[in-house]
């Protein structure tokens, strides 16, 4: 059996609060495994222990009890982090560096060999779609761009495991969609992705498996389809049906021993609708521009 990307066993983390040292339990007896080449979602409301769990996985915090391994290596070891890329929530970077300089800096911190550094930097910048803005100072970036350049620094040393903490928080739906595309591309390249979020709609279609945390405890874990599917129900989406036809269908269902539970109008999610509309507008705009360019070219040519 292949070594899991992350193995958390019976992990508990207590924080001492105040001068008398009252204990606050952030993570409570958590056991979890994230398989290789999987997109895994760590879900939960604010304060449910997601960030603490991630910090323990990254070796930034010592667990009170229990253990955590990355590809079989204890996560508190610095060497375990060679195979990990991390994007924190709402990251801030040195504002005076350009996007490319920033990614290069992180590449050198991770000891990417000099001969490969240019290629590594360019390819991750390309992957996150920042090639055009890479020469600009980080201080001029929008939130979505910061998130993408953050992703580039997390990926620059080609880690096998990528951890994203609230990658879509505060990013507009377009940005979120772009990040989701990058995550899918990572999976295609054989990487493992662990992402935490409280914005469920944005990662619903993305994760292979999810775990739901509440007050530091694991509430549910499994494949997204398994968790949300109504196993005893099916939906038929029908178009152009007359009232008579519908009555006949209902009668047939009943005759076959079924039961019509509810009838709904199918709807797109607002996210999907928004993305569809924006894409249409973008294509129309691009076509118009192209046409305008061609007509001016033509005029120039005739002059």
């Amino acid at each position: 059996m292949k070594t899991p990307a992350i193995r958390i066993s019976n992990l508990t983390k207590d924080f001492a609060v105040g001068i008398r040292g009252m204990k606050l339990r952030a993570v409570d007896a958590l056991s979890l495994e994230v398989g290789d080449n999987e997109i895994f979602g760590l879900l939960g409301p604010n304060g449910s222990g997601k960030s603490t769990t991630i910090k323990i996985i990254l070796g930034l915090l010592e667990p009170s009890t229990g253990s955590c391994e990355i590809y079989g290596e204890p996560s508190r070891r610095v060497s375990a982090r060679r195979s990990v890329g991390f994007l924190p929530e709402a990251p801030y970077f040195y504002r005076y560096l350009s996007g490319r300089e920033l990614v290069r800096y992180y590449a050198r911190l991770c000891a990417v060999p000099r001969s490969e550094i240019d290629w590594a930097v360019d390819s991750v910048i390309d992957l996150v779609g920042m090639s055009e803005a890479a020469h600009r100072r980080v201080g001029t970036y929008s939130k979505g761009m910061l998130q993408r350049i953050g992703l580039a620094q997390a990926l620059v040393h080609d880690p096998q495991l990528v951890i994203l903490d609230e990658p879509t928080a505060g990013v507009d739906p377009l940005g979120s969609a772009a990040i989701a595309d990058i995550v899918r591309e990572l999976k295609r390249r054989g990487k493992t992705v662990l992402l935490s979020s409280h914005l469920l709609a944005q990662i619903e279609g993305l994760c292979d498996r999810v775990a739901i945390l509440h007050r530091g405890q694991l509430v549910k874990e499994g494949r997204v389809d398994d968790l949300v599917e109504e196993k005893d129900a099916e939906a038929l989406v029908v178009q152009g049906l007359t009232p008579e036809g519908r009555a006949a269908v209902e009668a047939t269902i009943q005759a076959q021993g079924g039961h019509l539970a509810r009838v709904e109008k199918p709807r797109l999610s607002l996210d999907a609708y928004f993305l569809k509309e924006v894409h249409e507008q973008e294509s129309a705009y691009a076509a118009k521009n192209k046409a305008a360019d061609e007509s001016t070219d033509g005029k120039d040519g005739s002059a």
Binding site: L60, R82, P88, P91, Y106
Partner: peptide
């Protein structure tokens, strides 16, 4: 406060 330390210490940096 800006979590830059976080991005660095998440790398193989002591």
């Amino acid at each position: 406060e800006n979590r830059t330390a976080l991005t660095m210490l998440a790398k193989p940096v002591y």
